[in-house]
Structures are given as C-alpha cells and as structure tokens.
Design a protein around this nucleic acid. Structure first.
Lengths: 154, 154
DNA sequence: GTTAATGCAAAGCATTTGCACACGT
DNA sequence: ACGTGTGCAAATGCTTTGCATTAAC
C-alpha cells in the first residue's frame, strides 16, 4: 500500500477522528487503514481494489468490512461513492446531449435540456492526454416527492 | 404500456429500422416493442421497468431479451445507458466539488479540478421543483492508455 | 462491562452465458 | 435454408445480511 502525503494524511486523519468522535464511531484499525488506502490513490478505487491494497498489510481483514467501512465513510461525509447509485443500469432513448437530475432519495432520474450547459470545455492540463468524446452533468438533489419527507440535508 | 407520441415514435422507429438494416440486425417484435417502451418514458427506466412495461403486451418475453436488446440499442447508438458503467461502485476520499474523466474503454476514473466548472446553474423550468444539492460533470472519453488501441469512435 | 465493529458464510440481486429452439431475412 | 435472435436455466459477480466473536470506548 502506497503511503499518502503526510500533509494530506494528517488532514484526513484529523478530520476523520473528529467526525468519528462526533458520530460516536469507534476508531478501529480497519477504518484507519481503509481511509489511508482510499486517500492514497486518486483513481477512485473499487471495493476490491481497496481490499487488495490493504489485505497484506492488515492480515485477515474481510471484504465485507471494506464494503461496510466505505459506506460508513460516505454516510459521515469523508468519502464519496461515484457511479452506481443503486447498482442497477438505467436506459434512455434520448441520445442527444442532455443532463440529469437525480434524486438522491428515490433514485429517479429526470432529463434536463439546457443549451447553456451544452458547450463546456474543461480548462486544465489534466485533460490534455484525455480524449473527451462527450460529457454529461448530473445534478443531485431531491425531487418534489422526496422533499416533503426529507428532514435533513447531507 | 403507454403509447408514445406519434411523431416521436415515427422518428424513432424510422431511425431504428434504418440503423438495423445498416447493421444487419433483424427487426424482431421484441426489439420493436422494447424500443417503443423505452421511448415512451422519459424517466430512464431500469431493465426491470422495461420488462414490466412489456411483459403483458408481449407474452412470454424474457428478461434476458430485455437485457440483450437494450445493450444492442446502446451499441448501435439509439439508446444510452446511464450510471452503472461497470456495475461496480467506486469510492473517492476527495469530497470537494470536482469532476470526472471516465474512460469508456477501461473504466478508469480520473479527477478533474477546474474552478470554471464549479458554479453552473441550470436555467430551465424543469429544475424549479427540484432541490439541487450538488452536481458533478462526467467527461467520457479515452484515457491515454486506451487511445492507442481504439480504432473507432462511437 | 457495554456497545459497536468485524469476520465468516450464506443469501440476495442484477447481470451474463450456454445451449436448444424459433424467427426474420 | 441460413444465420441471427430468443427463452430458459444455470452461472457469475458484486453486494448485503445474520450471527458469533472481538475490539473499542
């Protein structure tokens, strides 16, 4: 497992400990290790990649724990889960460029056609080696149905 | 199953038939029905939702066929698959707003930090009832590794 | 000492695959 | 007729769950 930059690690670790205390979560070696593994790579690892990264270092750790710990991190706000919101594929007959409004509560996806959002060009060096073919914006929030029942905002 | 607007249906159907002929694909009743079901709703149905929509109308149709037909539609460009690119969740320790470069070939996801993309506000009525909490842009394309081996662009 | 977290094994879903039969060309 | 497409059932892969053990507070 690659070590993360001291600065980043310190920051993440301190934030992590504070958030754990606030939420009454135990500071286990598994959580510490998984956080370090996750923070040490910027390529959005899958559960299995994190597991592979830590399993030699933390003998006997279970894949289940990696699943659970990562979900815990998402729920306390120190990590994000990208793609795969409900582990089901969704299909769309509209192949023109358009964007999506995704309800974080019920999973519903609505189309958003807005020409002002259709000609974005990223302006950083990171994209230099990347051949961009298309893009899509996902706005996450609460649909009208779910706003009424939601009592907090993440 | 709700019927789609005549105009839209005619368009989609004609496009569909042309593309099928071009690709040597058979015009089966399953493909026709699934296309109609998909085009008749704008809420990005899952495979199961499409299956539920057609199963009474097309007795004996198999869920497997819905899976296969929808993937066929995506490969010939008359439908899109949203979310769940590789049916695996990916996690990220960076919780600041940022965007993603996703390689459509190998599934790799890279971060893109670009302040010029961080203050988009959609300007349509569709968002009026939607409570937007956050957003993220996914740029789809080919990473440097995959550009060399890709011989066509979808 | 209590309560929460972990590990294991089994279960649960979504999705894919192999193969025989049916259908579109 | 030929080759593709479909249906079925089984397999696969990712993820979740129940329960006993272990560790954190």
């Amino acid at each position: 497992m690659k070590k993360i930059e001291p600065n980043t690690r310190e920051l993440k670790t301190r934030e992590f400990e504070a958030v754990c205390r606030k939420n009454g979560l135990a500071l286990t070696i598994q959580r510490r290790t998984i956080l370090e593994a996750l923070a040490s790579r910027s390529d959005h690892p899958t559960v299995d990649q994190v597991y592979e990264d830590i399993k030699d270092y933390l003998k006997g750790v279970s894949r289940t724990t990696v699943y659970r710990v990562l979900e815990t991190f998402v729920s306390i706000g120190i990590a994000r889960k990208i793609s795969n919101p409900e582990s089901k594929a969704r299909f769309d007959a509209d192949t023109k460029r358009h964007h999506h409004l995704t309800c974080i509560k019920c999973g519903k996806v609505l189309d958003l056609h807005d020409p002002t959002l259709d000609n974005l060009v990223p302006d950083t060096e990171a994209v230099r080696e990347f051949d961009i073919l298309d893009y899509s914006i996902t706005f996450n929030g609460l649909c009208s149905c779910c706003q009424e029942t939601a009592h907090y905002r993440p």
